[in-house]
Write a protein that binds this DNA or RNA. Structure first.
Length: 424
RNA sequence: GUGGGCGUAGCGUAGUGGUUAACGCGUCAGGUUGUGGCCCUGAAGAUCGAGGGUUCAAAUCCCUCCGUCCACCCCA
């Protein structure tokens, strides 16, 4: 089958049978944001490339090697959005949302693009549900976001998830910590795995979540950030934990939680399925980013938010075999034959749909047997049969497909009323 | 971006050098007069991911590319 076109690498079609998952996700997101009072804000699919270079950070992998960037015919440097947060912040500044009552609670559901090597749960084009609260630095806002995040999965019916919560302090304190961490590891360099020796220079935090046994042993004596937070960050962290406890949301403090974007400060969290060893298992993650808005040209504005990867959520929904609302079988399937029967079938269809009944028509030219098979396969409750004979008599034969046998003639024009009685 | 596994009809699989590539599900058509589910019969559907090479002979061996999955990396 090649030679034929196929979806570009790392992209996928969403076929009809996949749609119930997406419907469930949109319903759950809509419901949970409504309950928490979040408003939807949608941004463009592409933005000024510099927004992410500044916002996300031009030393991050996302910006350095994963952005789809291009120049348009007018010479503008643009990027397909790799994440929503800087775009939401841009919109917040551009439209003066800072002048509305603070904080502003927003959400979006959008496609994101990152050029990386595809894997299960890692696509080049993927969808995220994203919530942000701008204009508040309180711990309770973080707790609220984590709770909302949690309730979203809860509403979908997902179980066996775990919130991992951590704090990475503020920038200055984090730099000091990184120095301490490096000081600890430097003399031990030779004992580290090859990967970790490289990490020591590039991203020392990564040493802490290495899977290599050698690294894990050395980790025992390493300083941890969470036990040595600045007083302000420590108090904030306590506030987040208090808020979650009050909300009845379970969490585990993870001192090794080092994942996430560079702009995060203080609160960070991720939600993962318990006992899943895969690398792409985190289905959602978030954190506070008090410095980002200033970085992209706004006044210093505290903010916090999270994103959840919807394809990853669906992987987990399938794994947990969640029951989905089925799309709904048709109410009626109209079987017909002959020119006059065809016209009557179209009229019957219009009448039925006008009355709110989901109605499918059989294929003209196909045998009754074929059409009846299709009617049965469609799951329709009733078959409405209009052949030459019925059409001539101005009636349709109504047949309940749940039972054997019985069918009766109903005058054309009274079909919808009759179905109404049968289906209430 | 690095390393590795895999790639046979729409889907799931069998076949690992030798006649027209097999099976299940699905699709289509039939099983006497215009009627479904079960059953039966038949048909369509595959340049065996693509291109090149080795060989008398390749789905099967080799190379390249594409796709997918796993690890690394990154992250949702």
């Amino acid at each position: 089958m090649s030679g034929r076109f196929q979806t570009p690498r790392g992209t996928e079609d969403i076929l009809p049978e996949e749609q119930p998952y997406w419907r469930a996700i949109h319903d759950a997101a809509g419901e949970v944001t409504r309950l928490f009072g979040y408003e939807r804000l949608d941004t463009p699919t592409f933005e000024d490339a510099a927004l992410f270079e500044k916002g996300t950070g031009d030393t991050t992998d996302i910006v350095e090697k994963e952005m789809y960037s291009f120049q348009d015919q007018g010479g503008e440097a643009l990027s397909l959005i790799p994440e929503a947060t800087p775009a939401i912040c841009r919109a917040y500044l551009e439209h003066g949302l800072a002048s509305r009552p603070q904080p502003v609670r927003l959400f979006t559901i959008a496609r994101m693009f990152r050029y990386n090597r595809p894997q299960l749960g890692r696509l080049r084009q993927f969808n995220q549900f994203d919530c942000e609260v701008l204009g508040s630095g309180t711990a309770l806002v973080d707790a609220e976001l984590i709770e909302l995040h949690w309730r979203f999965y809860e509403r979908l019916g997902l179980e066996n998830l775990e919130i991992r919560l951590g704090s990475i302090d503020d920038l200055e304190a984090r730099r000091a910590y990184l120095d301490r961490l490096r000081d600890y590891y430097l003399p031990l360099r030779d004992q580290l795995s090859e990967d970790s020796q490289r990490r020591l220079d590039r991203n020392p935090l990564r040493l802490l979540d290495s899977n290599d046994p050698r690294d894990q042993e050395l980790r025992e004596g390493a300083p941890t950030m969470i036990d040595d937070l600045s007083p302000e960050a420590a108090e904030h962290f306590e506030g987040v934990k208090d808020g979650l406890t009050a909300a009845g949301v379970p969490f585990v403090v993870d001192p090794l939680l080092v994942r996430g974007l560079d702009y995060y400060n203080r609160t960070v969290w991720e939600i993962v399925p318990k006992g899943d060893g895969r690398q792409q298992s985190s289905i959602g993650a978030g954190g506070r980013y008090d410095g980002l808005i200033e970085t992209i040209g706004g006044k210093p504005t505290p903010a916090s938010g999270f994103a959840t990867g919807l394809e990853r959520v669906i992987i987990e929904m399938k794994r947990q075999e969640l029951p989905l609302r089925d799309a709904g079988a048709p109410d009626a399937f109209v079987v017909h034959a002959g020119a006059e029967g065809g016209r009557a079938a179209v009229r019957a269809g219009a009448e039925l749909r006008g009355a709110g009944f989901v109605t499918l028509l059989g294929e003209s030219g196909r045998s009754f047997k074929a059409q009846m098979r299709r009617a049965n396969g469609s799951g329709a409750r009733f078959a409405i049969i209009i052949g030459e004979d019925e059409a001539a008599r101005g009636v349709a034969a109504l047949k309940d497909l749940r039972e054997q046998g019985d069918q009766e003639d109903v005058p054309l024009g009274e079909i919808a009323a009759r179905l109404g009685q049968e289906l209430r």
